[in-house]
């Protein structure tokens, strides 16, 4: 099984760290993983995106041309990557910031008001974790436990106090798409 995920949004939405957490969690489950960011001037205030591959086999190309899932955190990202979802694939839309519907009918689409859910938790910055929770629940690419474990590694001990709210955001996201 190979999961090929494109995550996209604007700088500051935690796009890169979402992808890294996912890759890290895959690694903790002894899967083959890769994380490839967009880089350069487009990162300065523009859209940021990363490609994450989690696979039982060796990862060949780290570049995703046909995604099993796209997570769109803002509208330009939806416009840019909607067509990258392979037929039968998954498209997760942050409906807090995206007012349009998906135009594809050959894929599964979920609308998640990630910012609103995050605000209910008291910190809009965990909107990315809400989306990640939804994605994991839909795809089973990795287990929520692995994501929590990688959170500890990625955040480090100085930011350990952020773990509970992130954990909560993950489960709220999962809950929403059940």
């Amino acid at each position: 099984m190979t999961h090929q995920i494109i995550i996209a949004g604007f700088g500051g939405q935690g796009i890169m760290s979402m992808g890294q957490l996912l890759a890290y969690a895959g690694m903790l489950e002894d899967k083959n993983v890769s994380w490839l960011p967009s880089y350069g001037p487009e990162m300065r205030g523009g859209t940021a995106n990363c490609n994450v591959i989690i696979s039982d086999d060796m990862v060949a190309s780290p570049i995703i041309t046909k995604a099993t899932a796209v997570i769109a955190m803002n509208k330009p990202s939806l416009d840019k990557f909607e067509n990258a979802v392979s037929r039968g694939g998954l498209l997760l839309i942050n409906s807090s910031l995206i007012d349009r519907k998906a135009s594809r009918d050959d894929i599964e689409v979920c609308y998640i008001p990630a910012n609103e859910i995050a605000e209910k938790l008291g910190n809009s910055r965990v909107a990315n974790m809400v989306m990640l929770g939804s994605y994991i629940a839909k795809s089973n690419a990795v287990s929520p436990g692995s994501v929590i474990n990688s959170l500890t590694k990625v955040l480090g001990s100085s930011k350990a106090h952020f773990i509970p709210i992130n954990q909560k955001a993950l489960s709220m996201g999962a809950e929403y798409v059940k």
């Binding site: 690694m27 083959n32 993983v33 994380w35 490839l36 880089y39 780290p62």
Partner: peptide
């Protein structure tokens, strides 16, 4: 190349 430099793998 830039991809090898920027990407993450185990």
């Amino acid at each position: 190349d830039g991809i090898l430099g920027q990407m993450m793998e185990p």
